[in-house]
């Protein structure tokens, strides 16, 4: 399946997170202007997915930085213009519901 065939919500997040693959993640990242997903990006993306699949929501920025070892500055550098939303999109999960 390529990204074009998948259903997405108004913000462009996948509606079915089970359809997500690493290849799809690369396509989603390119849409967000991230041409290359580094090992640091993957650390964040994988943690976002894991937390969502376990708890039903993406982690807060604080939890994300504490558990991934990627600090706030780096997080904003990896995912410019809104890290939580962007990382969630690339991870194939909905926009985080939390305020922090």
């Amino acid at each position: 399946m390529s990204l074009k065939e998948l259903q997405r919500d108004a913000d462009g997040h996948l509606t079915n997170n089970k359809e997500w693959t690493e290849e799809i993640a690369k396509e989603l990242a390119a849409e967000e202007g991230i041409d290359l997903l580094t090992e640091r990006h993957w650390k964040v993306i994988n943690l976002m997915r894991k937390e969502f699949l376990e708890k039903g929501d993406a982690p807060s920025i604080r939890k994300l930085t504490k558990e991934s070892g990627v600090d706030t500055k780096e997080l904003y550098a990896l995912f410019p213009k809104g890290p939580a939303k962007k990382a969630a999109k690339i991870a194939g999960i909905p926009k985080p519901k939390g305020c922090v």
């Binding site: 920025i61 604080r62 706030t72 500055k73 939390g98 305020c99 922090v100």
Partner: peptide, 17 residues
């Protein structure tokens, strides 16, 4: 709710740009 203490929050916000 994962809302940090003031000092940590200020650092986090500043690091966020």
């Amino acid at each position: 709710l994962d809302i940090p203490p003031v000092r940590e929050f200020i650092t986090m916000i500043h690091d966020a740009g």
